[in-house]
């Protein structure tokens, strides 16, 4: 998937986030520990996340719609450690659940919508940091 396509979708997701939602800011503890004072490293990691994550969210949504749980779980599995890296911790319980047992989630569509919203809000905060 091209960067332009990913960014275009990223923008549309971000634009869909309501202004009045209360959302915890990304927790940078882990990334700061990893960076050991290297600000460029932090920016680089955030940049990679902002560039790649929208594609993962689109893929999750598509695989859920297709009922392809194997691929859905794979994408969620890959996303999990990245969320810890950039401190979007509030999305982790849902993504973990999808990664482990997406086929058993009754409200999968709602769960994925919640994940997308939470991550998009986190990405909005991350964009301010770079």
């Amino acid at each position: 998937m091209s960067e332009i396509f990913a960014n275009a979708n990223y923008r549309s997701y971000i634009d869909a986030v309501p202004d009045n939602l209360n959302y915890p800011k990304p927790d940078m503890t882990y990334l700061n520990e990893m960076a050991e004072g290297d600000e460029n490293f932090i920016k680089e990691i955030i940049g990679i996340f902002l560039n790649n994550c929208p594609e993962s969210l689109i893929l999750m949504q598509n695989y859920a719609m297709l009922g392809d749980h194997e691929k859905l779980k794979f994408v969620a599995h890959k996303l999990l450690p990245e969320l810890t890296f950039v401190g979007i911790l509030s999305a982790i319980p849902d993504v973990e659940k999808i990664s482990n047992e997406s086929e058993l989630i009754n409200d999968l569509s709602a769960t994925i919508s919640r994940v997308i919203l939470t991550i998009n809000m986190g990405m909005g905060e991350l964009r301010k940091m770079i």
Partner: peptide
Amino acid sequence: DDFMMIKAIEHKLKSE
């Protein structure tokens, strides 16, 4: 295969 993970591992190992 995850670029973020590669960057993080490289950063730590090269610093050592």
